[in-house]
């Protein structure tokens, strides 16, 4: 049983015009077995929330806390957070010339699991995971993210998700820029990851489309740096029909 607890979280960025508050008091708990969808318009601070969970921000968090099973996440470095069981599937994965996918995967799996996987089982495991995501085996020898299409990058993120098997996964707009076929493949990967009930997922998205393939237990509407409404899957349906208009007004009035 794992719990990611985010409490009254604030985040600021330093701008020319002074500190600007991007997250304005976010409280959210994700437990193993749960999928939470955080939905909001562009610029509402969704990526900022995703990153603050997985990566120490440049400007330190002024208020609030994040804990993973009671451990203070904000005190951890980025690699410590990954080894503690957090994973962020990025919206814009980084290209690393000359580092092959297979070398990268094996090195990260070794770091996260604390020991190198046995080679024989590892090769099988990697090939199997790639096949399930319909990734060409030749990918293993290509440089990480270099020359990958948008869809290939996202599949590569989900490949890592499945191999690293974190306690809590944060997916930042993994659905954006994918065609329907790629979206289904990616969604199936997330569903496999989530299937055994030992892990939790925080799915961040702008569109409701992905929720046809990944069914959240909870939906949160995110506007202007905070959660303005929480509910079950029915909230996503409502969003699909009504859009964010109503919430934008609600966000502005509070």
């Amino acid at each position: 049983m794992t719990t990611l607890a985010i409490s009254n979280l604030h985040a600021t960025v330093e701008t020319d015009a002074g500190a600007r508050e991007i997250l304005r008091g976010v409280t959210l708990t994700v437990e193993s077995g749960q999928t939470h969808a955080v939905m909001g318009p562009n610029g509402s601070g969704k990526s900022t929330l995703a990153y603050v969970i997985a990566v120490p921000p440049k400007d330190p968090v002024p208020e609030g806390s994040i804990t993973l099973d009671g451990q203070d996440v904000l005190a951890m470095s980025v690699d410590e957070r990954a080894r503690a069981g957090l994973f962020l599937a990025m919206q814009y994965p980084v290209e690393i010339p000359g580092v092959s996918v297979s070398n990268f995967l094996r090195t990260s799996v070794t770091a996260v699991r604390g020991e190198a996987p046995k080679l024989r089982t590892w090769v099988k495991e990697m090939k199997g995971a790639m096949e399930a995501l319909q990734i060409d085996p030749a990918f293993a020898e290509r440089s990480v993210n270099e020359g990958f299409s948008g869809g290939e990058k996202k599949r590569h993120e989900i490949l890592q998700l499945e191999l690293l098997k974190p306690k809590i996964a944060v997916l930042d707009e993994t659905d954006s820029g994918l065609d329907v076929d790629a979206l289904k493949v990616v969604a199936e990967g997330v569903n496999r990851f989530q299937a055994d009930g030992t892990t939790g997922t925080l799915l961040i998205t702008h569109y409701t489309r992905i929720l046809r393939y990944i069914h959240p237990d909870y939906v949160h509407v995110f506007v202007d740096g905070r959660i303005v409404e929480s509910g079950g899957p029915e909230l996503a349906t409502k969003l699909e029909d009504e859009g964010y208009e109503r919430f934008l007004k609600a966000g502005a009035s509070t």
């Binding site: 990566v55 470095s77 690699d79 957070r81 990025m90 290209e95 690393i96 580092v99 770091a111 690293l164």
Partner: peptide
């Protein structure tokens, strides 16, 4: 690049 690798648990 360093950050991406570290975000996958790889020490600095």
């Amino acid at each position: 690049q360093l950050f991406y690798l570290q975000s996958r648990g790889i020490p600095a």
